[in-house]
Amino acid sequence: MTNLLLEVRDLKTRFHTPEGTVYAVNGISFNLPQGSALAVVGESGCGKSVTMMSILRLIPIPPGQIVSGEALYVGQDLLKLSENEMEANIRGKAIAMIFQDPMTSLNPVLTIGRQLTEPLRIHLGLDHNQAQRRAIQLLEMVGISGGANRLESYPHQFSGGMRQRVMIAMALAANPSLLIADEPTTALDVTIQAQIIELVERLRREIGLTIIWITHDLGVVAGMAERVIVMYAGYIVEEADVDALYEMPCHPYTQALLAALPRADRRRDRRLKSIPGAPPNLLVEPKGCPFAPRCEHVRERCRLENPTLTTVSSSAALRGLSGDHRVACWVDLATGAMR
């Protein structure tokens, strides 16, 4: 077995709001080997961000509450660390996170240089010149050349793609071993998105960064992930290596998502398959399979009991695909039989 960098066990997070309890994350477990690239996909509101923010303990408490679970980062449970330890050793140090919106994450009235060097000086204790040099080096690492001049610029003088790269540079400042990217390209154009993906790939190759990439775009996932987690309503419904997932998706939701996607590389041959119904309401305590109301393969049992994530028969392994393929569904879609 490879070195595990992060191991999450049965993470549950809820929000207690005036309208009721939001069951945002309902028992998530996954392993993240050193140097791997994991993609987390799922629709808006399925709990992708909350999962990652819970691991970094960034959710507001209250209304948030981490009900149970552990998140072992090289063996130590992040959920049990003191706030000071999180601040001093984990957030922005060992684990860095970048967010969706590059516009709001940078302060518009401070220069890029100021925003890059300040954390270097405060957290890493570098002096002004060292910080300056490191900042230039970081910018070059993310493909922004021009050195010292660039440090004098203000965020508005950078385009969206450049701002997102500055965010990545800031995240890399303290040499983190894990980078969590929360939909870093959703607000960007495809050409810029391709640049960012290329950049992150390169960082992974060159400095051995481990990456969790959150997205709702199954196309992006295919290009940059090794392993994929599909989330629905706060649950993992399927987890597999990227090839296995696209070749033989086992959960009806994953299948439906793939069938709902048009392809730029093929002639149109059919209407898109749409998933009926609306996204789930997280305000009710989940009972049964969360996807059951929208599922075309639904059985009696699906409405009563929520299936657990189980390894499917290793046909994937037989066909030369590695890694176990896990799915949370009562129905074996290949045969139509119950599991």
Binding site: V190, G219, V220, D243
Partner: peptide, 17 residues
């Protein structure tokens, strides 16, 4: 630059950056 939901094809593809 358009991502394609197919890992094999994605890996083989040459992007024009």
């Amino acid at each position: 630059a358009v991502p394609i939901p197919d890992p094999k094809q994605e890996r083989a593809r040459q992007r024009i950056l």
